[in-house]
Nucleic acid binder design. Structure first.
Lengths: 154, 154
DNA sequence: GCGGAATAGTTGACACGTCATCCAGACGCG
DNA sequence: CGCGTCTGGATGACGTGTCAACTATTCCGC
């Protein structure tokens, strides 16, 4: 292995700022969402994807694909959400192994109440302090990193 | 409450790309670190801060400040790391309530082996695909968001 | 149609984080 | 000194995430 290419001061600073922004931004969004709607960010994501579809019902595997989550994670999440009455599981007549996840009326009410203030928070904490150029630059940058991640690990 | 200021397509896309980059980048870094060194990212952070100081020993509260972690989180983390022999707790003679966290020889070996490949991964997955201007822009952008977070929640 | 491989989903163990609570020792003030 | 309060830190419960193992069904080739 060649000499380690350590980070210089500027890189170090960039890296720390970026990591810190991620953590604190996510924490703030989670806190607000919880306070406004008793939902966690994972709850919110699941409900968004579920209600995005006719009947608000999806096969577990389809929902997992749509969220890009692994099935085990989703299974645990569904279990917790079902316990709180946000979704229910239903058997799948076509495939004895399969299952549907369905949004309950409570779940629908929750997401409809949660979405507007959540988007507003995202705006206030993020988009409102960025210029259009910032947003473009960040998008491009993110996609370059994502490409790299893709080629790096298949 | 006024009309919700929903995200337009470009904002939506930016937001998703950014979130996805965060998640996948962190996951990739964690995976590589684990594979190379049997350390988690939290382990790594704790060891970096501890070994950054003479004697590699710190009061729990000082370490918490340095990491900007809450004391409870740190306490749990120390417990897990102590169980694996990376650090030990020591009583504080000056203050009967207090405790020191000390890096063990195993812990020191672990961080010294872990650091170079970890930095290399950060380079390969992140800095190598960014221009200097990207890095500057990201730093400024992160700091603006952090400022906003600061004023938003004291 | 039967036996083995692939698929759908659940479960259990464990790491990590947060919150609320608890406890012991230090501190401050009469 | 004595008592209330503040502080350093640990703990337990719970939500979240990963990994590995398991179950039950379907699929496929003969």
């Amino acid at each position: 292995m060649a000499e380690t290419r350590w980070l210089d001061d500027e890189e170090q600073h960039a890296w720390r700022s970026y990591l810190r922004m991620n953590k604190l931004l996510e924490a703030a969004l989670a806190r607000e969402l919880q306070a406004d709607s008793q939902l966690s960010l994972p709850d919110f994501e699941v409900l968004v994807h579920l209600t995005d579809v006719p009947d608000a019902r999806l096969r577990v595997s389809a929902l997992a694909r749509s969220l890009q989550w692994e099935k085990s994670r989703l299974s645990h999440q569904i279990a917790r959400m079902a316990r709180r009455g946000l979704v229910t599981r239903e058997e799948c007549p076509d495939d004895g192994r399969g299952a549907f996840v369905v949004v309950t009326p409570d779940g629908r009410r929750a997401i409809e109440e949660a979405a507007p203030p959540h988007v507003e928070t995202v705006r206030q904490l993020f988009f409102d302090v960025l210029t259009d150029d910032d947003v473009k630059a960040l998008t491009v940058l993110s996609e370059r990193v994502l490409d790299r991640l893709d080629t790096h690990t298949p």
